[in-house]
Design a protein around this nucleic acid. Sequence first.
RNA 1: GGCUGGGUGGCGAAACUGGUAGACGCGCUGGACUCAAAAUCCAGUUUGGGCGACCAAGUGCGGGUUCGACUCCCGCCCCAGCUACCA
Length: 820
Amino acid sequence: MSTPYDPHQVEKDAQRLWADSECFRTTESGDKEKFYCLAMFPYPSGQLHMGHVRTYTLGDVIHRYKRLKGYNVLHPMGWDAFGLPAENAAIKNGIPPARWTRDNIEYMRGQMRALGFGFDWNREFATCDPSYYHWEQWFFTRLYRKGLAYRKNSVVNWDPVDQTVLANEQVEDGRGWRSGALVERREMPQWFLKITDYAEELLGELDNLPDWPDSVKTMQRNWIGRSEGVEIDFPVVGSDEVLTVYTTRPDTLLGATYVAVAAGHPLAAGAAVRDPRVAEFVEACSHTKTAEADIATLEKAGVPTDVTVTHPLTGESLPVWVANFVLMEYGSGAVMAVPGHDQRDWEFATKYGIPILQVIEPAEGEDASACDLSRAAYVPYGRLINSGEFDGLSSADAFGAIADALTAKGRGRRQTHFRLRDWGVSRQRYWGCPIPMIHCPECGIVPVPDEDLPVLLPTEVQFEGVRSPLTTMESFYRTRCPECGGEARRETDTFDTFVESSWYQARFACPDANEPMVDERAKFWTPVDHYVGGIEHAILHLLYARFYHKLMRDEGLLDSDEPWRRLLMLGMVLKDGKKMSKSSGDAGNPQHLIDKYGADAVRTAMMFAAPPDQAFEWSEAGVEGQSRFCRRLWTLVQDHLAEGPVPSLDKEALGADARALRRKTHETLQRADDDYGRRTQFNTVVSAVHELVNAASRIQPANGQDRATVREALRVAVVVLSPIAPHLTQALWAALGGKGLLVEARWPEVDESALIQDRLALVVQVNGKVRGHVEVDAGADEQTAQAAALGEENVARFVDGKTIKKVIMVPGKLLNIVVG
RNA sequence: GGCUGGGUGGCGAAACUGGUAGACGCGCUGGACUCAAAAUCCAGUUUGGGCGACCAAGUGCGGGUUCGACUCCCGCCCCAGCUACCA
């Protein structure tokens, strides 16, 4: 192989070897321990961008490392193929979504092959395959029969010109992105899955996931938002009705000075009929986007109504306001307002001149100056005042006392509340999995029977405007009721695409399973041992998949409690400081880099650029450098081989330079093993290999043992680098006498004896500042080290004339002499 | 607005459990090779001072704990992700 490095030839050769040997095809047999490594499958948007390159290179690195460590590794790939962009492309270019999606998949699969990702392509599927969504429909009918799927009204963004529902990202400044029309909030019936039934388990199980990042667990805990509080009834004056609110601060109940309801609350509707100002306010609220971020950043505003309620403990009358920050979807759509002790209520009360009452004072030992109700609300817990019989109680004691008092009066009850809401799975869109339900005028809602599944999504469609073609396609929606046989209408909503991505990991275990949705192989492979994907999925996708896994477990399809054992959450690859999007186009496309430098250089540069969990701005500058490194390693191996055969290594016969190189070799092996296996930080693996290769190229071999040491260093460098740059290293492995495929090889053992050092360098500090370095025997005690340190001229200069007060020694590292 | 992260040379970063800040690479500067260039190789490269050995300052900003802080604590500024219909 005395040829110059040609990455394209080398990569073609390695990829042919892998294809011919089918080495990435995985089965359930054999005595190796199973390891399921999965990277989040992509939406086939057209071409890979650098975010994909990062995700799939990381997944491939973990997969190849685990193979070297002797595991039976499953590493599949497929396509999250339903979604909005395909419809947008269809509307814009007239290409049917199915064809657009298939073309994109073809192209992106080619790019993945060119990048050398070792996927088991025998397991590939796309979620738009009827053989996949068939089982999603089958499972939904089971959930429906169990009462875990139901229908209720829910608010959507409605574009009155295009007559369609808009996704949050399709609303720009309150207007539809295509029509420019002012968006309206509109209620419509939608399908929901009862994720709240599993809220307690979804929260509790987080404690049993030690290999998840703490940040993700915290985000999920906060999202689920379990709280303990009290539900309180405020009787409506002049009516039999009560207005129910939920609060986690019943200790502040005596400080309530008004009650606020959502614009969508029945009380607000009633008041609007009587008062045009209320009607106007409610109308204005109907144009706010449904996204939480938009509602939360609105300027707080409200109107008073003619409705008053009675305070359940004092009997006083409190006014009812309609406020834009109260959400109908959350809790009961009404809140009690305590402006003295809640900052949002304080701002609202200050704006509208509503009384502010202090009922909590800072507890003993707290900073009393922090409580100044003319400047802000006092939010911390404290001691009750102005609360009648409850005066003097701590907030904690008052919680119980007031809850008991309310319960005794029949005006309240303790309640555990979750922020988590049920999962709305209906989408008024075409390119998704049809919801397998039939609306019969006689029998009501009837699930499609198993024998009629799948409900096929028609692929030959014409888009007229932006509405889902299903709603006007008689051949699709006209059907017969399975129960009475009468004329009925098929559901035209499709599933949220998060449904498909909630169980694909189980389907990869048995992609050809036919009856039921997964078979015994799913129990063999799940849970996924290492899941790799973008941090942007930390809440929704991961939470939905956890929920779905439990649903499948409870159906007897799976036998584990959680889908993902260990998580690697990748930071975003940014473009101009922002998340990459379809609109960044070619800027994120790796194709020209692969064409110019080859896959190994692109992969190495991507791994070298930053640690996996960190977001970073992609720049092509590093690729050239790694391409140079690949060539240098290639040339170094060639030159080494050209010098002829080497004798076998004799550890006892090594000179000082060889011993130093050998220590470097085994240190690199140890460090890389830790970085790959425990830390999942691969940029430092690349650095370590750079260092080893630099050291191996610097040595001037004087004899056979020197050359044998270099050979060992090169072999280690090749194996350690192989998960990252698999093609180049395959060729070098063979050239260095490696047997078989490198992907079938084993990770080398560290020789502990090579790591031992007789003499150690110590840093010497005086008062914490570095003043010199000394070399001592490995076992040297503090006295010996101190004596050696004081022998250093520069150290002595800072110690002379002063008293040594203290000496701190960190064995093998540092000696700090504290003088005064 | 809320939740979760992040901020270190000209640039990407390293420093893992509180122990030499800047490994490794990019870029840049100088040199070798060349008719010349590219490629390659060698040397230098945090800032300020000094011929130099060295000295001082330095990890977003302001405080604190410690023999010792990029790392821990308190307050602030800026950036990113998510925020339930982007995936």
